[in-house]
Write a protein that binds this DNA or RNA. Structure first.
Lengths: 174, 174
DNA sequence: ACCTGAACACCGTTCAAGT
DNA sequence: ACCTGAACACCGTTCAAGT
């Protein structure tokens, strides 16, 4: 939907606070009130933005071994966060029960199943892994790691992946 | 400061959006404009709220073995999140360079040093651990785990601690 | 030192009316 | 079906003026 993609562009160019009904309408060359035909209210607009972000973040993954699949998922999510730093935080704050959110969970669960994690444990592990990855990506775009250099943040991300992979492997031996 | 503690109480009783300069002033029995004597603007007010939260979350820890010290830190942080669910998300979004933030980092670094992590690695590990714990606490209060029962979320939290502890131990053997 | 009145520019939202 | 004008209640903030 044009309204949503323009809202995302506006958020990227300025910041989330700049995404005002009036500013968005002006960008679309239309009056503020016209927006309420396409979106029921502002909360709905923000939900749409989150959905757009999720759809962009979760790529249909190719055939990969599970550690690479997990790394690809995390890398894609991190890249999306950096592309849309002002909208990304919304992702952690709005419980996503949408199709794209389910696809993200499935992607991790698939990696866990490939690794050989018992089916009764995959949901729990999936929640912990996705939370750790989301937390890292959010921290980075929110400026929590601004004291670190870019290469240092990359090294942190690599270590995160290493720890997550190890934690899966140790659950296989148990 | 009375202004900050009342703002926190207001956020707890209603929600963050309800913390408006007018509503806060009314609660203090004073006019809106009087607030600008105690706080330079609303952003400053929110920063003060974050600081208040951090101070509450980070308790001066007793003498504990490192796994218990780490667990105590995480448990305290999680409890603070649940006590102030609407303000807590701000903690991830405002890079905290304050005294309380430093104390939180030191608490984890101390546990890592006790565990025997080489000094050159503690900062990096500390960032990853605190990010995972913050991510969990934020997810929980933001409703990302609403599909899970309370006992299930508790079990998730225990597993998180277990994984983090394991990741420290595996770095000792390396 | 602390508080107030009046004023400003800007929010989101509704609703009847227009094409 | 889609857009607009006018209006509403509510934001944060400034500034001169009061005690």
């Amino acid at each position: 939907m044009r309204v949503l993609s323009e809202a995302l562009a506006l958020a990227d160019e300025r910041e989330l606070d700049a995404v005002t009904m009036a500013a968005l309408a002006q960008r679309l060359g239309v009056t503020t009130m016209a927006l309420y035909r396409h979106v029921t209210n502002k909360a709905d607009l923000l939900d749409g933005l989150v959905e757009l972000l999720l759809a962009e973040a979760v790529q249909p993954a190719p055939q990969l071994a599970w550690p690479e699949r997990l790394a690809a998922f995390a890398t894609d999510l991190r890249a999306t966060a950096r592309r849309h730093p002002s909208v990304f935080p919304l992702l952690l704050e709005r419980p996503a029960a949408t199709a794209a959110a389910r696809q993200a969970r499935d992607e991790i669960s698939l990696a866990l199943a490939d690794a050989g994690i018992p089916q009764q444990d995959t949901d729990q592990m999936q929640r912990l892994l996705s939370t750790a990855i989301l937390g890292f990506a959010l921290s980075e775009v929110a400026g929590r790691f601004d004291a670190q250099t870019a290469p240092q943040r990359d090294a942190d991300f690599e270590l995160l992946l290493e720890i997550l992979t190890e934690s899966i492997q140790s659950r296989l031996r148990a």
